[in-house]
Structure formats: structure tokens, C-alpha cells
Design a protein around this nucleic acid. Structure first.
Lengths: 227, 227
DNA sequence: TCTGCCCGGATCGTATATGATTTGATACAT
DNA sequence: ATGTATCAAATCATATACGATCCGGGCAGA
């Protein structure tokens, strides 16, 4: 028995492998926005043929992580200010709703865990560790919306985060002042949930929390004098 | 000069062609939920190779219109009651927001057109023409959210509609009582927009309008005695 | 010098061919 | 009669090959 062309390294197809590989390269910044993705090149690097790579890239396109033009090629999606606004707006919407749908089914342990994560985030601010802060922020919100019973919504939330994290280096910069607000809003959100607040209240709190970050970004855009 | 393998019928690639072809077949009911999509078979029917068809199917999968399993094959997505609820829930969310974002930029002509469409819908009820009613319903809502400045949201709304329309025959049945309510709610929504109501008000009105249809469905599910 | 044309390289798009996997049927042993 | 092993057909997954298309650079003419 020999390793044959159609074999799968894992339970995954080569197309899925390529998909994840490229995606992680985008996430970790190896392929930054605008980077040109050349089928043959990636295929050689992964030691597969161009067909699975092509499929991977088309899927990434459907996710909005890369742009693709017929007979031209693919490149990592640019995230300009407008794109950022649209993505954040959409994410605020779906994340807010997902959080509201999750809220009723969260148990005390989970909420406690969320509070601990938020406390860690506060520590990160003291030590000025924006990288950990960003990671913990994702953990915090994941904790709150992962229980959402609607898989479509969850998928949309994940896509939104994926887009942002993939392109965080270009625009999504850490704004210290906003970060402090963020931690406070997290506490307020947890209080709302723990007190069994109305679904709409929770939704709007979660939504506005994210829109707040967007506003902070826009404010900085329009007054970029402050470092 | 001869028609060669890589040629495109239009400006579209064969993969895109196959994508649209399969999608329309799903929409018009030729391929109903559960129908098995066999690559080779479709490829022969379209007179293309299996590669573009495969790509088309993977894209449809990303859209949620078909399910796909490695080494097994693809089939038109089943839309059971749970799926229907999730899809409607998500659609209510994004459509509501898209409508709210559109509202401020709608001009008088557009609103007038929406009112005319709604009047036609009322006529359909008198003549008992559920097919036209459903078509006009899409037209009505399209009129209201097409001006939405956020392309991501618009895309999500279109995907939701696509899912529903593709699978309408199986579950999405016309409930006369609800249809009358629907027309009335359309009028109320237009009034809100015309009076320059708060964005949140418009959003919730649009959202609840759709959730009302969902509720009507659920009520019928739990009490299916009445035909 | 500038402009337009043509050509070659790079890359995408698809057909074809073949390996890999699943599924269902059949034959056999218990 | 039932359960299990084996095999063949169907189908997916991928490699390879080649045509189609785009882009940039060189060359001829004004």
C-alpha cells in the first residue's frame, strides 16, 4: 500500500486543509490585506494540485476573507474604513441577538467564568497587554453567545469575528480609553443577564457595546491628531 | 476558430453558470429538499466537466442551500421545522435592521411604490392568489431594504430569502388569516417610515412583522387540526 | 518622445484520467 | 434464518494537461 493522490492526511480533504491553512495564514498576518494569493504557488507550497487550492480560495471568497476576480486571481480582502464599519455594524447586530438568545440558558458557572475573564482583561489594561486583551475579549463574548440555540446566528457571529481578527493588524487598533469603557460595559452586561433582564435590553446592551467600539474608531479617524 | 474547453458562454465561468442553474432548479422546485445532487449527472446534463459543478455545489453549500458530505455527495438542504425557525429568526433580525437603515434614505416615490405593491397584495387576497401574493411580498420588502447602505446586511437578507423561497413548497405555506394581518402590518410599517419614526421603532416593527409569520406557522404546527 | 500594436510569460479555467471511498448486494458460515 | 465477509458499481477527490485570458514590455511609426 502506498500513499496515493486521493488520500487524505487526516479526516480532512486537501481542499479543507488548504482552506484552513490559508485562513490561518491570513489570521496570523502572514498574508496581509492586499496580498496576492497565487493558486500554483500555494499548491506547490502545500504539495497538492491547484484544484483543491482553488476550491479553498473560492470558499474564503464566500466568507468574505479574500476577493477574487476571473482570470485575474485572488487577494486578501482589503478592509478599509467603510468595510470596517459595515462589518462592525453587522457583527453588532448578530452578536447582540445571539447574546440575547443565549442569556436565558446561561448557568451561574458560565457567568462566573465570564466575570473572571473580564477581571483578567482589566489586568491586561494595567500591564498594557493589548494582545492578551483582544484574545480575552473574544473569549468573553464567546462565553456569552456560544449557548445561542440558533446555529445560523452563531455562524454569522463567527464569520464577523473571523473577518475582524484576520484583518485586525491593519485597522483594528487598540484604543486604551475605549478598552476601559469596554470592561465596564462587560460588567454591566453581565449584571443585566444575571438579573434576568428583558431579552431586548440584553440585545441592545450587547449591540451598543460593540457599536461603542466602532464609534471610538470613527472618532479617532476624524481626529487622528492624538496618537 | 473553434469553441474551446476554457471558453465562457457569457462573461460567466461554467462554475458560475452551474451555480445559477442548480440554484434556479432548487428555487423552482425541480430539485426539492432531500434531492440528491450527483456531480457527474449534473455535469453531463450541462455538458461540462465535473470540476465546475463541484465548485458550484460547494458554493451552494456555503450558502446553506445544499448539504455536502465528503465521499458521500450533496443533497438539497432539508428544511425541517427547526431549520425554518432558525432561518426566519435570523432573517427577521437582518431584514429588520436593513429596513431600519434604509428607511431614512427612502424617497416619496419609493414609498408610494411600496404602497401600491401592498394594495396589489390585498387584491391577491380577494382573488385568492397565494403565488402572486408571495411574489409581491418579496417585492414589497425588497423595495424597503434595497436602499440599505450596508452590503453585508443586504447579502444576508438575500440569502435568507433565497433559503426560504428555495424551500417554500415543503413548509412555507400560505396562511390566509396571517396574510391579512401581513397587509395591515405593511401599512403600519410604511406609516412609521413616512412619519420619520425612530430607527429602533422601524427595526422592531419590521422584525416583529416577520416573527408574526413565524408565530402563525408555529401555531398551525401545534394545532394542525384546522386545514 | 509619444502612441499604438503585438507578443511572450504568468495565471486562471476546465477537461480528462485515475485513485480512494462508500454503499449495497451477494455468498457463505453459523 | 441471521449475521458477516467479500466484491462490484457508483461516486467523490485529486493530479495532470492544456486552452483561454490578462498583463506588461518591447518595437514600429508618427
Amino acid at each position: 500500500m502506498t500513499v496515493s493522490p486521493g488520500a487524505a492526511t487526516d479526516g480532512l480533504s486537501k481542499a479543507q486543509l488548504a482552506h484552513q491553512w490559508i485562513r490561518s495564514r491570513i489570521s496570523d498576518g502572514t498574508y496581509s490585506p492586499g496580498y496576492r494569493l497565487v493558486l500554483g504557488q500555494i499548491a506547490r507550497e502545500l504539495d497538492v494540485s491547484a484544484v483543491p487550492v482553488r476550491e479553498a480560495i473560492r470558499l474564503l471568497e464566500a466568507e468574505g476573507l479574500v476577493t477574487f476576480e476571473r482570470n485575474i486571481g485572488a487577494q486578501v480582502a482589503m478592509l478599509d474604513a467603510t468595510e470596517y464599519v459595515h462589518t462592525m455594524q453587522t457583527l453588532s447586530l448578530v452578536e447582540g441577538y445571539a447574546t440575547a438568545l443565549s442569556a436565558p440558558v446561561l448557568d451561574a458557572d458560565t457567568l462566573e467564568r465570564a466575570r473572571r475573564i473580564n477581571a483578567e482583561m482589566a489586568d491586561c489594561l494595567d500591564h498594557f497587554d493589548p494582545v492578551s486583551f483582544t484574545r480575552l475579549n473574544l473569549e468573553f463574548h464567546s462565553t456569552l453567545f456560544e449557548a445561542c440555540p440558533n446555529p445560523h446566528l452563531l455562524d454569522l457571529v463567527h464569520r464577523g469575528w473571523s473577518r475582524l481578527s484576520a484583518l485586525r493588524d491593519s485597522i483594528f487598533s487598540f484604543v486604551p480609553g475605549r478598552a476601559h469603557e469596554s470592561v465596564a460595559e462587560h460588567t454591566a452586561l453581565l449584571d443585566l443577564i444575571e438579573n434576568g433582564a428583558d431579552a431586548l435590553q440584553v440585545e441592545l446592551a450587547a449591540r451598543n457595546h460593540r457599536l461603542g467600539t466602532l464609534d471610538a474608531f470613527l472618532a479617532r479617524q476624524h481626529a487622528p491628531s492624538a496618537p
